[in-house]
């Protein structure tokens, strides 16, 4: 009997889409936080950092309540957009984005804050707008922070379990990712399949992290800023 590779494929698809979404969402949020002096900033930071300490099942529980067809957001989405987020793949993406938020935002925010202020100020006095300065001076000089954010988000999403189980369940080809398949196969005492999934995840996760550390060493001043 061949082993069903669908869960692995689904895992990587989820990790890839989540990383992409978080990159687009994380850069502006990190930029805002990096320059903000608002009194509300600690609240925003604490909120974004929550997934670091909260059990994923807690996050999953609340998301399930909010997003289910009887929840306020779920019923709204269902009624006006005909969109259902619980037990669907898009729902997994939404959950993963929230779950990995700090892993993308923290490194980028740290990278931006560590850049000498004089770099952006020099660019401004040269007549370049804040936006041009951000994309031509600030972002290109935090490459290692960006890389760290991308890889950590990707790797963190690969390892997701509790949240996926809560809002995705274990629907084959839709929400049954590798971590859940491992759990199911182990429970069914099907160790060879569990071995295959686990081994592949282990090797790939290790390889990704190794590549990042090697690249950061080459860049020289890079270190993983979590």
């Amino acid at each position: 009997m061949g082993i069903d590779l669908q869960p692995l494929w689904l895992t990587f698809k989820l990790a890839f889409i989540t990383t992409l979404c978080l990159l687009v969402l994380g850069i502006p949020v990190a930029a805002l936080l990096a320059k903000s002096k608002s009194r509300l900033k600690p609240f925003a930071e604490a909120l974004i950092g929550l997934p670091l300490v909260l059990p994923p099942s807690v996050l999953g529980f609340y998301l399930l309540l909010i997003l289910s067809p009887t929840g306020w957001l779920g019923s709204f989405l269902q009624q006006y957009f005909n969109l259902r987020l619980v037990f669907t793949f898009p729902g997994l993406v939404v959950g993963s984005v929230i779950y990995s938020l700090p892993f993308m935002i923290h490194p980028i925010q740290g990278g931006l804050q560590n850049l000498p202020k004089s770099l952006k100020e020099a660019s401004w006095t040269m007549g370049h707008s804040k936006l041009v300065t951000f994309f031509k001076v600030q972002l290109p000089n935090i490459q290692s922070a960006l890389l760290t954010g991308i890889v950590l988000t990707f790797a963190h999403t690969l390892g997701e379990f509790g949240l996926v189980l809560m809002i995705g369940g274990s629907i084959p080809k839709v929400t049954k990712v590798a971590s859940i398949a491992i759990y199911n196969e182990t429970e069914a005492l099907n160790f060879s399949a569990a071995h295959t999934y686990s081994g592949i995840l282990l090797v790939i996760s290790f390889t990704i992290l190794l590549l990042v550390y090697l690249m950061n060493r080459r860049v020289g001043r890079g270190r993983l800023a979590i």
Binding site: P116, S118, L119, E121, A122, S123, T125, V137, P140, N141
Partner: peptide
């Protein structure tokens, strides 16, 4: 503006 740390763009 010539800054004390030069503020040259490393990229």
């Amino acid at each position: 503006f010539v800054f004390q740390d030069y503020a040259l763009f490393p990229n």
